[in-house]
């Protein structure tokens, strides 16, 4: 028995549960969690690991949960440990034993790695599209100012005359590189860890290539340890975002300077 057991046990348990829980922030991946589970169940049935009836119950049940969350009919349970447990518990509540078979040949370790990758795929696409939109605004503005003379600076001292278009387009090229970095990170993001299991795969005859294809990945991650413990894609995307923010921040700094009475341009 732990030293701190006894009359504090209940209180400690609750605190540890709160500390352990991630549903307050991982619930935003509900859609990706459900889509991953649908692909997993589809593959399990194809490999004769679960029955067609169970597969149908699971897929219908998951689609119902997805629909209910999006329609606002199903709220996340803040006492659930994470989004994966929440969805699975809700599924089992709805369809009974078939729900308990969904997690066959899978671990939360590969499930969460899959969810983040699916989630980030969508987010990277949105960041790319927003960046593209900003570059378009910059191009339109530059087009209007190809003859607008402004001072070009070095050491924040007026150095040589340039045009405002030239100045704006410098930011256009920075943002274009940001898009290239995100696209490049996406290439390595787009591999599927599902089927890595807890760390060492599984004895079930799963088909990892099939789930990767169902989820539109370029292929499965080839090493199960790497599949569950790699977070390079988070680092690469965060790094690309940090560099893009640095560009926006430099631009912001100039706008702040230009707005001052000392500049007033």
């Amino acid at each position: 028995m732990a030293m701190w057991a006894g009359r504090f046990q209940k209180e400690v348990d609750e605190k540890v549960n709160d500390f352990n829980s991630s549903i307050s922030f991982d619930s935003r991946m509900y859609r990706h969690d459900i889509l991953g589970s649908i692909a997993h169940a589809t593959m399990l049935e194809e490999q004769n690991i679960i029955s067609p009836a169970d597969r149908d119950a699971i897929v219908d049940g998951l689609n119902g949960i997805l629909n209910d969350i999006e329609e606002g009919h199903l709220a996340f349970d803040p006492t659930a440990e994470d989004i994966h447990m929440f969805v699975e518990a809700e599924l089992t509540r709805r369809i009974g034993d078939a729900g308990k078979r969904l997690h066959t040949a899978r671990s939360r370790n590969d499930q969460v790695a899959l969810d983040i990758r699916l989630y980030l795929r969508d987010e990277v696409k949105e960041i790319l599209s927003l960046t593209k939109e900003l570059i378009r605004v910059i191009c339109d503005m530059a087009k209007e100012h190809t003859e607008t003379i402004m001072p070009g600076y070095t050491h924040l001292q007026r150095a040589q005359p340039i045009t405002f278009a030239q100045h704006l387009l410098a930011y256009g090229f920075m943002l274009l590189r940001d898009m290239e970095r995100l696209n490049d990170a996406y290439k390595r993001l787009n591999f599927c860890p599902l089927g890595s299991g807890a760390l060492a795969g599984t004895t079930y005859p799963i088909n990892r290539k099939r789930t990767a294809a169902l989820l539109l990945f370029d292929g499965p991650v080839l090493n199960s340890l790497d599949g569950v413990s790699d977070r390079d894609y988070c680092l690469e995307i965060c790094s690309a975002i940090a560099i893009e923010m640095m560009h926006l921040s430099r631009f912001s700094e100039e706008i702040i300077l230009w707005c001052s009475w000392e500049f007033k341009i």
């Binding site: 949105e126 995307i237 975002i241 893009e244 923010m245």
Partner: peptide, 13 residues
């Protein structure tokens, strides 16, 4: 990992 990457994504958007 999630809170950090979510925050970065939300912020840049």
């Amino acid at each position: 990992d999630k809170e950090a990457i979510f925050d970065a994504v939300d912020t840049v958007k």
